[in-house]
Every structure is written in structure tokens, then in C-alpha cells.
Simulated scan of single mutants.
Amino acid sequence: MDYGTIILRTIFIYFIILFVLRFMGKREIGQLSVLDFVVSIMIAELAVVSIENIQVPMLHTIVPIVMLSLIQIFFAFLSLKSEKLRKLVDGRPSVLINKGKIDEGEMRKQRYNFDDLLIQLRQNNVHNIADVEFAILEPSGQLSVIEKDNNNDKNHVSLPLPLILDGNVQKEHLQKLNQTELWLRQEMRKLGYRDIKKISYCALQGDRSFFVDLKDEK
């Protein structure tokens, strides 16, 4: 066995993968979706084949790795332009605890048991389910937790739902607030925003005020 060749291949593949992951973006490291996870596994398998089988030319491994990274970047670019594709590829968040009530049906749908819930609550430094107002299972598998505001019971905590994303009205979120798109447009006009398409992000805050961020605003 040519150990020198194996060592050189290992070093070379290491830098290739490092470059590819950096090129694909920080999201690949910090927040893996299902698609990201699949691509990462495939790249890892190709790297192992290249290191173990020195009879196979390295180009036969590098080309598929580069192609996988380009495919991933292409889908990431398309998901920026298409909300439907973004939801199809990345999935959507699931509310497991809603206004202090556990949604067992949603947990079954996500194949998520109470042990999983308690473990992730502890990882969020929450030791009592009774202290949780909302628990949201993100597409990455992480659990986002919003605790109850026990110091101010009059102002009930509301789930921070985006009403506008990338210029598109989130009708599902409006329905949860028992409001219509007409109401939202009227509220935006009151604030001086007449073109919804120019709004990058809009959400209703706990004090019933709107947080609005315009596209490409400096």
C-alpha cells in the first residue's frame, strides 16, 4: 500500500471539501436541511472513495463533488426566488406547543415523541413545559422556544409570524390572526407603504405594532 499517495490524497481532498463547503455558504454548516444533509453525505462518501481507492483517478471524484456543490447552489438560488420551492426543499416549521397547549397531532405527524420534546426543551434551558408559550420545530430539526411572560399576564404573548416575506403576503399567517389581505394592505398604507412588493419582511409584534423592512434598504 502506497501510504504516501494516501496521505497526499487525504490532504488534497481535505482542502477541496473545505473550499466546496465555504463556496456553498455558511448555511451548509450551521443549519442543515434534509437536502443539505443528503449532499453532505454524498460528498463525504466520494471523499472516502477517493482516499481509499488510489487506483481511481482523483478527477473521477472531484468532478462529482463540484457538480453536487453547483446543484446545491442552483437550488439555493431558485429557493430565494420561489417561496413554493423553498417550502418544498427546506420544509416548513411545525408548531408543537401553541399558546401553552401541546399539539399531539402535529407531534405524531412529525414522528416526534415526548422524550424528543423534553430533551430539546432542556437544551433550550427550559425545564418545565408549563413555562412554554410556543415551541416551533424548525426545518433543520432544531426547536425554537418562546417562554411565557409571567411578569405581564395582560399582554398575551403572540407567535411572531411574518405577514410579508420577499414582497409576498403570507395568507396562512393572516388566517391565524383572523385577518385578511385587505386589512394588511390598509395597515401598510397607513404606515406609508403602498407597494407590498417593495417590502422584504413585515411582522406584527407583541404590542400590535408592525416591524417593516424594505428590500435593499441601506
Rank of each mutant, 00 (worst) to 15 (best):
S158D: 06
K148A: 06
Q110Y: 03
L118G: 03
N125G: 05
R111K: 15
L118S: 09
D153G: 11
M107Q: 03
N151T: 11
L118V: 10
S140H: 04
D103R: 07
L159W: 00
E133Q: 15
Q120P: 02
K148E: 07
Q120E: 14
R122I: 08
I102Y: 03
G100F: 03
F114V: 15
N125Q: 11
A130Y: 09
M107V: 05
N150D: 11
G105D: 15
Q120D: 09
P160H: 04
E133S: 12
D115V: 11
Q123N: 15
D116T: 04
L159S: 02
A135S: 06
V126Y: 02
L121H: 02
N124L: 03
Q123M: 13
H156Y: 08
D153C: 07
N124C: 09
N125D: 12
N155E: 14
L118Q: 11
I146Q: 03
A135Q: 00
G141S: 10
N113W: 07
R108N: 14
K101W: 05
N150T: 12
N151G: 14
N155T: 10
V145C: 01
S140I: 03
N125Y: 09
F114C: 05
E138K: 04
H127P: 02
L143A: 03
V132Y: 01
F134H: 04
L121P: 00
L137G: 01
S144E: 05
R122M: 08
A130K: 13
M107A: 04
N125V: 08
V126H: 04
I129P: 02
F134M: 05
N151F: 12
P160A: 04
I136V: 15
D103S: 11
D149M: 06
A135I: 02
K154F: 11
G105A: 09
F114E: 08
G100I: 04
E104P: 01
N113S: 10
E138Q: 14
D116I: 03
G105N: 15
H156C: 08
D131I: 08
V145G: 01
N155W: 04
K154S: 12
Q123Y: 09
D131Q: 13
E104D: 13
L159F: 06
S144D: 06
V145L: 02
P139W: 01
L121V: 06
E147W: 01
V157A: 05
R122Y: 11
N125S: 12
N151P: 00
I119Y: 09
K154I: 11
G100E: 04
M107P: 00
V126S: 05
Q142V: 09
D149S: 11
R111M: 13
R122G: 09
P139K: 04
S140F: 03
N151E: 14
E147P: 02
L137I: 08
H156V: 13
Q142M: 12
L117F: 05
K101L: 12
E147T: 13
R122K: 14
V126L: 07
N155Q: 15
V157W: 00
N150I: 10
H127V: 10
L159I: 04
G100N: 06
Q142H: 14
L159D: 01
N128G: 06
P139L: 05
Q142S: 13
I119A: 10
A130T: 10
E147G: 03
N151M: 10
N128T: 10
M107C: 06
I102T: 09
V145Y: 00
N128K: 14
V132G: 00
N124V: 01
D131R: 08
I136C: 05
Q110N: 14
D103M: 12
L143M: 08
K109T: 10
V126R: 01
D131G: 08
G141Y: 07
K101Y: 08
R111N: 14
